[in-house]
Computed example of a mutant assay.
Amino acid sequence: MRLFAVILWALVLFIFTCNISLHALLNDKILFIINPHPKYRDLFIYLDYNLVHPYWIIVKLGHVIGFAIMDFLLFWWTRKRTYAALLTITLALLTEILQLFFNRDGRIYDVVIDSVGILISYYASKLHKTIKIISKELNLGKR
């Protein structure tokens, strides 16, 4: 069940990552156009953040949420906190490279944005664990 959730969410991320555009996706069009000769140097463009489209902030918030969910699911499946975070960061990098093969704008700065979501998930799980430990200790002290 847990592995199925990871695979399903990875598929959702793949569709969002490789679909020709957000506009097409929002209009119920899943369309993949393959570019067999991507320009890898495009990964390192960093001054185009305001030129891509008017919904840039909303899309980047989607990056944060999408990869926070991916990290949570990987942690839920593996039960290894750091391993799940590293795996999710690797997946974030791979999605940016993959976008280049689908006529999309893969950018290293998106990996950094994805990592914000991963860090939120990482520290939320650490905080949850700490709260559980403190709660347990407080309950033991009442006896």
Rank of each mutant, 00 (worst) to 15 (best):
A5Q: 11
Y49L: 10
L25Q: 12
F102K: 02
L140N: 09
L74K: 14
F101Q: 14
M70G: 08
A24P: 05
S125W: 08
D28V: 01
H63N: 08
K132A: 04
I118E: 01
H37N: 07
A124K: 02
L8D: 02
K142R: 02
I30Y: 04
R104D: 08
V111N: 01
L26E: 03
T95P: 04
V59C: 12
V6A: 14
K129C: 10
L47F: 13
I89T: 04
T95F: 04
C18P: 02
L94M: 13
F44I: 11
F32I: 11
T95G: 04
L74S: 15
R143I: 05
K60E: 14
V12F: 07
Y46H: 05
L140Q: 07
I120C: 00
I69D: 01
L100N: 10
D42V: 15
D28Q: 01
L8F: 04
F16R: 02
F72Q: 07
F32T: 13
L91V: 06
C18F: 11
K80T: 14
G117K: 00
R104V: 06
I120H: 00
K39W: 08
I89A: 05
I131A: 08
L94R: 03
K29P: 04
K126R: 12
Y55I: 15
T88I: 02
L13H: 06
L138N: 08
D114G: 05
D114S: 06
T95D: 01
S21T: 06
D48S: 09
L31M: 13
T130F: 12
E137A: 06
G106S: 09
A24T: 09
F101E: 12
V12E: 02
H63Q: 12
A84V: 03
H53F: 06
L98A: 15
D110Q: 02
L86V: 11
K142S: 04
R79T: 12
I15V: 09
I97K: 06
V111K: 01
N50E: 12
R79G: 11
V59A: 13
L47G: 08
I57V: 13
T78H: 05
L73E: 00
L93Y: 13
K29Q: 07
H63E: 13
Y49C: 08
R143Y: 09
R41D: 03
V112D: 13
G62N: 01
A68E: 03
D42L: 10
A24M: 12
H23Y: 08
L91M: 09
L51N: 12
M1T: 13
K29N: 04
I65Q: 03
F14T: 11
F16M: 04
N27E: 07
I30Q: 09
T90I: 12
L61A: 05
T88C: 05
L26D: 03
T90G: 15
V112I: 15
D71Q: 14
I20Y: 12
L43W: 00
W9R: 02
Y55W: 14
R104Y: 06
I15T: 10
I20T: 10
F32V: 13
G106I: 02
G106E: 02
A84C: 09
I134H: 03
L127M: 07
D110T: 07
V12C: 07
L51T: 14
Y55Q: 15
L100V: 06
F14V: 08
F4M: 11
H53W: 00
D105I: 00
L140I: 09
